[in-house]
Amino acid sequence: MTSAAGAPSMVEGEFVLTPEDFRHIAHTLHSYAGIALGEGKAALVYSRLAKRLRVLGLRSFREYCQLIDGVEGVDERQLMTAALTTNVTRFYREPHHFDHLRDQVMPRLAARARAGGRVRLWSAACSNGQEPYSMALTVLQTLPEAADLDVRILATDIDPNMVAQGHDGTYSEEALEPAPVTLWRKYFDRADRGQWTAGAQLKRL
């Protein structure tokens, strides 16, 4: 398949994605979110954004590029970024990181907090909150009174929908299984239909 200008599509499918279209999308994503896309990601870009073209009633990626360039494309740039971001997360992902936090980092930070000092931890690319809540459980394991001290965890993500899910803090029991059962049952409250919601101490962090 080729475009009206004769450029071949990088991916076979319903819409033409020319190398120029791909470079345009990649440049926009990098400018907007600092994410770099190599040409090997053309199939991913096509599969994720073809859905947006259908929703918007667009006929080509060229039209999509024109949309995200304009003033009216502000919201779509955010939706494009969310569509192209892979949200891979789970509780206690990379367990050795949390072992290190508990055994090597928290003793020093706990002493600082108990002495009246300020402690701040940051979970970048937090997705739907499972990793920052894992951090919070680890903090509370070492410092049970953390929520009453000047200890806070900042959780950020490029996808506002993921941040909203994390703020809600509701997960299935299956999702919580990688976390130590004695911890999550202590700090999560039972909700409806097998769901559990982060309790007050977790959310205060």
Results as ranks from 00 to 15, higher is better:
Asn128Tyr: 14
Tyr171Asp: 04
Thr142Asp: 05
Ala124Cys: 12
Gln130Cys: 02
Tyr46Cys: 08
His96Met: 15
Leu44Arg: 08
Asp69Glu: 15
Thr81Gln: 08
His167Gln: 15
Tyr133Val: 05
Leu101Arg: 13
Cys126Asn: 05
Arg77Val: 08
Pro160Val: 15
Val105Thr: 14
Ala110Arg: 03
Glu94His: 09
Gln141Met: 00
Leu67Gln: 03
Met162Phe: 09
Ala111Ile: 02
His100Ser: 15
Ala164Gln: 14
Glu76Tyr: 04
Gln104Asp: 13
Val45Asn: 15
Arg120Cys: 06
Glu177Ala: 13
Arg114Glu: 07
Val151Met: 01
Arg54Glu: 05
Ala36Thr: 14
Arg62Tyr: 10
Pro160Phe: 09
Tyr92Arg: 10
Gln78Met: 02
Ala82Tyr: 05
Gln78Pro: 01
Asp168Val: 13
Thr138Trp: 01
Arg77Phe: 02
Gly129Leu: 07
Glu173Met: 11
Glu174His: 08
Arg62Phe: 09
Lys51Tyr: 09
Asp168Met: 15
Asp75Ser: 09
Ala179Phe: 05
Ala110Thr: 06
Gly57Met: 07
Ser172Tyr: 03
Val151Phe: 04
Val119Met: 02
Glu94Ala: 13
Met106His: 03
Gly40Leu: 06
Thr170Ala: 12
Ile35Arg: 00
Gln78Phe: 03
Glu39Thr: 15
Met80Tyr: 08
Ala113Tyr: 01
